[in-house]
Amino acid sequence: MSGRRTGQVLLMLAGLIAWAVQFTVIYGVTSTLCGRGWADATLFGFGIVPATIVSATLITFAATAVAVIWSIKSHRQNAKRPAATTDGFMSHVAILINGLSLVVILWHGISALILPACA
């Protein structure tokens, strides 16, 4: 698989990978903190649990947004080359997957934030 194709696959799955990272960080960190009784621990005055949720959500959301923009750019370029049907297909699916991932990341972030972590 060439480097270009690897890049296309990664772009296609970028949003879902970002979601997996957000998921792992939020679930891993909160489980550890709750398991050790550190739910109320703070860092620079912020609760570690909500700070982790917010920062993981913002970072992965931003990364996915970049992937969406990149996918759109790539799709526009592919549209100018009628022979590149596979490329066009992959960039279009990348837009769809990354777009859906934006919603999923936000949906998860909010649901994790609105309840007390260890109650």
Partner: peptide
């Protein structure tokens, strides 16, 4: 399990209904 876990996985369960 903690409520936050429940909420988190509840959200994932509803999200998968979309695709």
């Amino acid at each position: 399990l903690p409520k936050m876990s429940l909420s988190f996985f509840s959200a994932a369960s509803t999200a998968v209904a979309v695709p």
